[in-house]
């Protein structure tokens, strides 16, 4: 299990998290390579099906990163994302994947260090949880097929 490298999909809002990731890069901040970022026009673009799909396609963890509450470029997209993530947690609990494998984060475009911190946090969490129940059945070498965007 020590070799387990989780596959984590991060749905990142273009206006904040995605820029924050850029900034983190410019600042030469390290963050785990297990994070696969997918750019979203707004965290409000996320829907439950998209989160479930990521797990079906092989993710061990998923997070949605949107703007700070009150700062959504589209006013309320991040609030909507928050509710949908909460619902996705319930569904993932129901189906046995585990709601703790999905999370919602809020940050601004200027928060490069926070972006790296979130990535570490999620990486550590999923590493602690181990592979998703679907991946436990698969061989270790199997890689995630396709992208989830």
């Amino acid at each position: 299990m020590s070799e387990f490298q989780p596959k984590i999909v991060a749905f990142c809002c273009y206006y904040c998290a995605y820029s924050a990731a850029d900034l983190a890069g410019s600042m030469r901040l390290q963050y785990p390579p297990t994070i696969r970022m997918i750019e979203q026009p707004c965290s409000g673009r996320i829907d439950i099906q998209l989160i479930l799909q990521a797990f079906e396609d092989g993710a061990d963890g998923v997070y949605v990163a949107g703007c700070l509450e009150g700062d959504c470029h589209f006013l309320k997209g991040n609030y909507r994302a928050k509710r949908r993530v909460a619902e996705a947690k319930k569904i993932l609990d129901d189906v046995g994947i585990g709601g703790e494998r999905v999370e919602m984060y809020n940050l601004s475009g200027s928060m490069g260090p926070r972006f790296a911190e979130v990535a570490h946090e999620m990486h550590d969490r999923i590493k602690g949880l181990g592979p998703s129940p679907l991946n436990k059945r698969a061989t270790k070498k199997e890689v995630m097929t396709g992208d989830c965007s």
Partner: peptide, 17 residues
């Protein structure tokens, strides 16, 4: 349509385990 998708995916995720 959307709920159909979510239920279908949920069932697949559940049964795949």
């Amino acid at each position: 349509e959307k709920e159909v998708g979510v239920l279908a995916t949920s069932l697949r995720l559940y049964r795949k385990q």
